[in-house]
Design a protein around this nucleic acid. Structure first.
Length: 774
DNA sequence: CAGTGAGCGAGCTTCCGCTTGACTT
């Protein structure tokens, strides 16, 4: 067997490296960390210098025993995990668990997977950096202490199974604070004035220019005043500025920027982006996708130059080296780039192709020359007013990297559609064809989307490339945050137009506002947990907490701080806060008193209960049991009004009898419904108001449903009444003992015999069983 | 598929960062 065993973190990496090293080297993967803190008793001996209790988790036992076996057959073991805190710790855990001896162990590192980099690494091995390992240990222990002490506090004080942690709790806080900013935002409006001008050129052709008033006008009266001045005045080009400018390409992708761009350009969720990128990585098409580095290997730089020169010409190429600005970046890998930059497209699924092409364009553009632009600003004066109109134009003189790639921006701003201005001269007079004043409302801050939350977290140095996607899925799984679309509302805006000197035309227009797509909204439970943590754990919830502990981890890594001292200082204070928070009597429910029920005089409160947010009528007394009603899906504790809460208690209500049985109207998980004779009938969520719907309408709905159900049955069998062929939303299917079974496309549903049905049923249930087993 | 919210108590939940796995309508 091989003389040398090399251990890296990822199997895909192992495969590539093995090719570079030749047959004396066997390359294996540890699949990340092989040990972790035990779950029992914190996995930390708190009274004994915070001694960590490490165990090999069950799912890692197989790989550990395989590595042990291979180690025995090898002369030298090369620990080639990443060159960062976590990578160093992995190397150390490997040497501990495999029982490696210093004389036949080598620690090597490389930042890029190229033959040259790896052969150089082999030439200059070192030993394990124990200070860096200690820094990782401090990080791990701190996160465990925080997570495993805070979460149980929430179980006792709020609800079981909740969680809190250094990263996730701050991510939720960002979303809660943003939501509150938006809720408390009061829009104001002003007027935006757009003028349309023209002049005749030498050929007597009309040339048009659009310009905007340099300032916004505060009120309608002022806007009217200005428009009236403009009715009979002179417009003149007062100033003309032509300025060359340029634009530079964005750096190559990191995990965070890839998630942002794939979200904006391809509509991928953060998790989806990572899943597709993983596929591309495993099939050797891109470099590693969990990275905070914008660095490209010299190999990549040279190939880029070749590809760009051949495809677009030498003028389009420019060497660039990018430096990361990210807080706490560890840069163990390259930026995300195509493995073979000469391939501008690949074979694979549609999503793989699209993500690959995005990565290819971004990488190549990052090594291309600047785009050269010419910006023109024309200032148009109004004879008897101080106000000015501004027209801007932009001409691309040389497209440079724009030929390949344009980074998308989060919000399309109103003046992002720059146009070309016609040739103009200073002093030139202009005719005016129209001036329009349009009311514009100020906008509240933007809610976070998954990628923009990642961007913010990265800015704060919270979380790592490998955890962005999992963290976002955790806070959604815990029910702290929902990813949702919201339809938004309509509002009237005023438009006043002056056209060809005619009297002013004032009219109302409706505009849509507040529409949201795939944005992150906090839930009631998210807000309650957030407020509780903020009140009792200021230090942890501070946006700078991670940054400040990172500084201490760095000191530990440099050997200037003892890790147990750092942890001790933190824990003593933190643990005190934990105990204090437990002294708070009763549960934390985020209770809000809305007022009094005018009918009964009882207090109306909203809060979170065991099953979610609810409204409560009156408090528990010896002679009184409160009434409860769950809030509707779109209602929030923060925003519900007394009237809306009182409405909740009006249901369920009886609207009369049909066939001598009462019809009861209520709202369930799937919207408003009528219950009658043990059956449920949905109300039309848009047109039927459950609070006012009448008996006649109820009967109508029940009869309509019965009629529809009649058509639902496509076929029945006399011999076996339990088997039915039904018409469903997705076409015909077999129903048997309350379970549904598919009918293959090749069969005609109407002509199936009972035997055929039973065969399909037994096949179907077999599939279900095997599915569950695994 | 549509209701729940009293209290008891056993046993469970939970962190962050490294990695992929083996699953389907």
């Amino acid at each position: 067997m091989g003389e040398n065993l090399v251990i890296v973190e990822s199997p895909a990496k192992a495969k590539t490296i093995e090719k570079f090293l030749g047959k004396d080297f066997q390359v294996k993967s540890s699949f990340g960390h092989i040990r972790d803190l035990a779950k029992k008793n914190f996995g930390i001996d708190i009274n004994n210098q915070y001694k960590p209790i490490y165990i090999v988790p069950d799912e890692k036992k197989k790989i550990v025993s395989e590595l042990k076996k291979l180690k025995k057959q090898s002369k030298l073991v090369w620990l080639a995990s990443d060159e960062d805190r976590e990578g160093e710790a992995i190397a150390w855990h490997l040497s501990e668990v495999l029982g490696l001896k210093e004389e036949n162990t080598r620690r090597i590192v490389f930042h890029e997977i190229t033959k040259e980099a790896i052969q150089n690494a082999i030439k200059s091995p070192r030993t394990i950096d124990s200070n860096l390992v200690k820094a990782q240990q401090a990080r791990r222990v701190l996160d465990r202490l925080v997570g495993f002490e805070l979460s149980p506090v929430l179980w006792k004080k709020v609800k079981p199974s909740l969680s809190a942690g250094r990263v996730q709790s701050v991510a939720v806080k960002l979303i809660v604070e943003k939501e509150r900013e938006i809720l408390s935002f009061i829009p104001s409006s002003s007027y935006r004035i757009i003028g349309e001008f023209w002049f005749s050129d030498q050929n007597n052709e009309k040339v048009r220019i659009t310009a905007e008033l340099a300032r916004k006008i505060a009120t309608k009266e002022e806007a009217i005043e200005l428009l009236n001045i403009c009715r009979s005045t002179e417009f003149q080009i007062a100033k003309l500025i032509v300025k060359p400018s340029f634009r530079s390409p964005a750096p190559p992708f990191t995990t965070s920027t890839l998630q942002q761009e794939a979200g904006r350009k391809l509509g991928f969720s953060v998790g989806q982006t990572m899943a597709v990128a993983q596929k591309l990585y495993e099939s050797g098409k891109i470099t590693y996708m969990r990275t905070d580095s914008v660095n490209l290997s010299s190999l990549a730089l040279n190939i880029s130059k070749k590809v760009i020169s051949e495809k677009y010409g030498k003028d389009y190429h420019q060497f660039r080296k990018y430096k990361t600005k990210t807080k706490g970046a560890q840069e163990a890998h390259e930026a995300i780039r195509p493995t073979y930059i000469e391939n501008n497209t690949i074979s694979g699924s549609g999503t793989e192709k699209r993500l690959y092409e995005l990565i290819w364009k971004r990488t190549v553009a990052s090594q291309m020359s600047n785009a050269k632009l010419e910006k023109t600003t024309a200032t148009i004066s109004i004879k008897n007013s101080k106000d000015l109109f501004i027209a801007t134009g932009e001409v691309i003189k040389f497209d440079g990297f724009l030929k390949v790639y344009r980074e998308s921006i989060e919000v399309e701003s109103e003046d992002s559609n720059k146009t070309i201005l016609p040739p103009l001269t200073t002093g030139q007079l202009l005719n005016n064809s129209s001036i329009t004043a349009t009311e514009k409302f100020t906008q509240p801050p933007f809610r976070y989307s998954e990628p923009s939350l990642v961007k913010k977290m990265e800015e704060l140095g919270i979380g790592r490339p490998s955890t962005y996607a999992p963290t976002i899925s955790t806070i959604q799984q815990r029910g702290y945050v929902l990813k949702e679309d919201r339809p938004g509302g309509e509002r009237d805006i005023i438009v006043i137009e002056l056209k060809n000197g005619n009297p002013l035309d004032e009219r109302k227009k409706t505009e849509n506002f507040g529409k949201e797509k795939s944005k992150l909204f906090p839930t009631d439970i998210g807000m309650v947990v957030n407020d509780f943590l903020n009140e009792h754990f200021k230090e942890i919830m501070d946006f700078n907490f991670t940054a400040s502990v990172e500084k201490e981890f760095d000191e530990i890594a440099e050997g200037n701080l003892v890790w147990t001292q750092m942890i001790d200082k933190f824990y003593k204070n933190f643990h005190k806060e934990v105990e204090k928070s437990l002294e708070v009597v009763g549960k934390t429910t985020g209770e809000r008193v809305l007022g009094e029920d005018p009918g009964s005089g009882e207090e109306v409160i909203v809060k979170v209960g065991r099953y979610g947010p609810l409204a409560q009528l009156g408090r528990v007394r010896e002679d009184y049991k409160p009434k409860f009603a769950g809030l509707r899906k779109e209602q929030r504790i923060d925003t519900i009004s007394l009237e809306e809460a009182l409405d909740l208690f009006k249901l369920p209500r009886t609207i009369g009898a049909f066939e001598d049985i009462d019809m009861i109207v209520a709202i369930g998980r799937f919207g408003p419904y009528i219950r009658h004779d043990g059956k449920f009938y949905s109300l039309n969520a848009k047109t039927d108001d459950p609070l006012t719907v009448k008996k006649e309408r109820g009967i109508e709905i029940i009869l309509a449903k019965r009629e529809a159900d009649k058509n639902k049955i496509l076929k029945q069998y006399e011999e076996n009444k339990e088997v039915q062929i039904l018409n469903g939303r997705w076409g015909p299917y077999i129903s048997y003992q309350k379970k549904n079974y598919k009918i293959p496309k090749s069969k005609d549903p109407a002509s199936l015999s009972l035997e055929e049905c039973m065969k399909l049923i037994s096949e179907g249930s077999k599939n279900k069983k095997t599915r569950k087993k695994k």
